[in-house]
Design a protein around this nucleic acid. Sequence first.
DNA 1: TTGAAAGCGCTAACAA
DNA 2: TTGTTAGCGCTTTCAA
Lengths: 347, 347
Amino acid sequence: MGRSDHRLGSQLPVTPPTLADVAERAGVSRQTVSNAVNNPDLLRPDTLERVRQTIAELGYSPNRAARNLRTRTSSLIGLRFTPVQEGTANATMDRFVHSLVEASEEAGYHVLLFPADDDDPISGYDNLISSTAVDAFVVTDTYLGNPQATWLSRQRAPFVAFGRPWDDDVARHVWVDVDGAAGTRLATQHLIDRGHTRIAWIGWRKDSPIGEDRRAGWLSTMHANGLPTTGLASRVEDVVHSGAEAAAVLLDESRPTAFVCASDTLAMGVLHTLWIRQLAPGRDVAVVGFDDSQVAQVYPVGLTSVRQPLEDVAVEIVRTLRALLSHQQVETRGVLLEPTLTIRQSS
Amino acid sequence: MGRSDHRLGSQLPVTPPTLADVAERAGVSRQTVSNAVNNPDLLRPDTLERVRQTIAELGYSPNRAARNLRTRTSSLIGLRFTPVQEGTANATMDRFVHSLVEASEEAGYHVLLFPADDDDPISGYDNLISSTAVDAFVVTDTYLGNPQATWLSRQRAPFVAFGRPWDDDVARHVWVDVDGAAGTRLATQHLIDRGHTRIAWIGWRKDSPIGEDRRAGWLSTMHANGLPTTGLASRVEDVVHSGAEAAAVLLDESRPTAFVCASDTLAMGVLHTLWIRQLAPGRDVAVVGFDDSQVAQVYPVGLTSVRQPLEDVAVEIVRTLRALLSHQQVETRGVLLEPTLTIRQSS
DNA sequence: TTGAAAGCGCTAACAA
DNA sequence: TTGTTAGCGCTTTCAA
């Protein structure tokens, strides 16, 4: 036997079997075992079979650290995990992470989470990249003016952004995003098809490019259908009571019969106002949210909402990442995916 | 200079600086640099200072793979990331992961996510442990009869469970959990203090030990206050419409003035029934949920809910993990933490 | 307090 | 098709 005792059927040995153990037991060289694992095509079928059987007998699994050291890779994708925003319905991040973990697994990667330090958006990234702890990053919070993206680009650290470099003309990195305007277009057209003509918009403040994008979808669809928009739009903070207040004002001043909102959080505010005014969502006034959060799903009447294809986003990101890491030429700088509309009783 | 060119102010070099580069530049041996990083006390102050400065100049950060190989550790904690249950309000997992990432960071660990394969609860664990890709696991879904816990125990893989080994008398592993009964006790007492005497329970099916635990808190508090419970309890699936139906039946048959629910999902069902019957939550009928989900937070009237101290759970788990990994004797087999009650308008 | 030697387990490069 | 050699960058052990 090798230097460590690998009795079959025993507990996990003190130290797991190594390549050398397998090689000795199978009567081949270490390199051959390595090839059996990584380049099976190079082996003669019977040798391969013998080595594979020995691997199975010993329960051998290549040591990650050794492989990482040798290949200068880690098979790890770093993701900065920002805290959930309590008091909002926003949970895009969480659904996305799930999708990313799945998509990464299929490509042979695992996802490494590290915390956000609000004071220093670079911290965390810095350490992981310089210690070669991860092969690449997925950057999600690009709306903050992209300090990470800029920094990572300069460090030549491989990464893909979930989100467009909105205002950053010099950004040259690869990104995947969801077409928010297309989402609100879907929502608005859906309401028009339902017979609504006075459709209000409640969105975020002007400094949010994502918010402006979503707003544009509503605006263009209204105009394309020859419908008025004057006095029908509102910009507020992304909190429930702001949505409620905006809805109250709009109802009083402009008598909309439907609302398209930049988030489920704002839509909940609208629903609150309707509830207070004894207006039935879906019957008296239609409401559409954005993100298809759990809140939209479990709210009693069910909130119609734009759903981001986060599974597809994750798959696309991993695909791009692989290309990046294998130094293939990445054909497109950015990929824009179409959201869908989940229709429920509120519309 | 070393074998790689580390011009100051240059881009990230092709290969990052190594210990040897720092040693050469600082005029000391590699071991001394290693000590400067890991055992600074061993160095003479002026040597330490010189080495540290060189480290800073070069932007040196120890290579993870090399360190991992040498020390047979990875500083990684594995967590099986189960998909969000759409259509429910359950988001405990997500809040917990955030807390775990934070707590792990402080202890020098990162969190490695791997996906759940429903067919085989062991898959994923197996590979990671035998390739020494992670130092330990955090196991969350212990209610499934603990196949992972049993398996991991047998493999002598270090892990801490979030959740008690309810029905498993032979389980010998370490765990951290939240006292669900204490939570529903808080909720029930809160309602009693508000003057309610007919307080109903809507919980899960009997085969859920977590559900039975939460139910016990309601039951004992009712009894302790000499209040009736007959005809006031219901066991259903954890979906909104089941909660709604149960509430309707209970209201018709037993006229409760308040509901304690095993989940926010069920509480949403109750709110739905109240809405249909034009009963005002909090004024006509009180409702308390469990988990303090985003749904509870953004629902227009605000849902009173039991909140699990997930931050504390994470800290406790990491603490235990560290003890486990440093082969200290872990003093207690299990730790039970107290939840709190977040009071909103629904009660 | 500092340095030298050895080796963790693997794979790239090359030789047979 | 298989084997040999070397070395990835670090820390443990031991010597100075």
